[in-house]
Simulated assay, not measured.
Amino acid sequence: MACPNSTSDNSGSLLQDAQNEIISIANAVAEFDPVILFSSSETFNMVQSRVHTNVSVFCTEETSHLWVRDFGPIFVRSRHDQSVSAVNFNFNYWGNKRAPSGDERIADIASQEILGAATIRAGIIAEGGGMEIDGEGTFMAAESALVNDNRNPGKTRTQIEAELSRLLGVTKFLWVAGEVGKETTDCHIDALARFIRPGVVLLSKPSPEGAGKYGAAYEDARKRLSEQTDANGRSLQLFDSVEPDLRKLPRVSEGENCVASYVNFLMVNGGVIIPRFGDEERDQGALELFKTLYPDRRVVQVLINALPLIGGGIHCATQQVPALN
């Protein structure tokens, strides 16, 4: 994880709220797994004094944004010897929508200096939030966030698939359209559709009180995925999680990049960390749905309002690391 500082795009109470939510998420994850939390010197003492004992705070001045899912490394295991390597997907600030501020170096710092994993340099540009994998060879993504000249100019979808297969070992691609330019990420899949397990997908359904950023993307994704099979030939079982009513959320609806999606969750060892936004009815509905989908895991909700306002959620703010031994 990473704690944002004043060189990010946010300031004042919004920055403070985002920092508080990062600490809350880290502490929730720490009940299940150890956490490495990147922090610049600006926030180090504050963060260090407030985190769970299972959270290790690593000080590096490269840290400015909180979206470590996108600029951090993606970890992979070798088929041959089970060694762990880290893929650097050449983060370019979501298609050059932000000026570089150091976070582009975090992937190498995380893999080499902290975890001692070898780095693999990708031949394409991508963000972790734009890719979803079922663990059995099936890859899911929105074309808008990958087959886009702001990331991969001149590259065809076939060329991008070949590189993803080389790096991630995937064999079947489920592409949805997504939506270009509605918010910074150009429709990351982790706020739209996620694998619960192989063959089971959870979709973020726009609120009937007013569609969020991905209304057209949801309709397209549901249609396409209902007609697809995964790498093992299974038809996909689809579930919907209805987004909160933004009118009930403190200031969330004000954000240009506002994304309030329950599917932006994180699986941890023995548990699932999901968002709570402040719409009590939808929050409770999401909790009950996740308990049904994950009967053998403890489901924990963490209140977030700053993160969705600036464009993401719990999954966006975290990056899992496989066991290194």
Rank of each mutant, 00 (worst) to 15 (best):
A107V: 08
P322G: 06
D149L: 01
I74F: 15
I109N: 01
G270R: 09
F139D: 01
Q228K: 11
N257S: 08
V242L: 07
E113V: 04
R222C: 07
S165C: 03
S49Q: 08
Q301S: 14
P153L: 13
A107Q: 10
G199D: 00
A286G: 03
Q159F: 13
S40D: 14
D70Y: 09
D108R: 14
D9Q: 13
N150R: 15
I74Y: 13
D245I: 07
G102N: 14
S41F: 15
S11R: 15
T53V: 08
G135P: 00
S241L: 07
V29F: 03
P73V: 12
N20I: 08
M267L: 14
V321W: 08
E127M: 07
A26T: 03
Y214G: 01
K223C: 07
I23L: 14
S235A: 11
P198D: 02
R297I: 04
L15E: 01
G169E: 03
R69H: 05
I189H: 01
P73H: 15
I273M: 08
A231T: 08
G95Y: 15
D240R: 03
A145T: 05
A211H: 10
K97L: 01
G311R: 00
K248L: 09
P208M: 01
A117M: 11
T318E: 10
F139L: 10
K291T: 05
I196T: 03
T158D: 15
L164I: 06
S204I: 06
D17V: 06
S226T: 07
A118V: 09
V321S: 05
L238A: 01
S85R: 11
A221E: 03
T138R: 02
E31H: 10
D81F: 08
A110S: 06
N269A: 12
T119A: 12
D240C: 09
A2E: 04
V176W: 15
F75M: 12
Q284I: 04
N148I: 04
S101M: 10
R251V: 04
E256K: 12
D103K: 05
G154M: 09
F32C: 00
F277T: 00
T53I: 07
A142E: 02
I314C: 05
G311F: 00
P4E: 14
G169Y: 13
T63C: 10
G129T: 07
L289R: 12
I314F: 15
N92H: 10
L246M: 11
I74K: 05
D134C: 03
S241Q: 08
G278M: 08
N20G: 07
L115R: 02
T185N: 04
L164V: 04
M1R: 09
T292Q: 13
R197F: 05
I304D: 02
D17T: 11
V321Q: 06
I274H: 10
P208V: 04
R121A: 14
D190F: 13
P308K: 02
E179K: 11
V263H: 02
V57S: 00
A117H: 07
D134M: 06
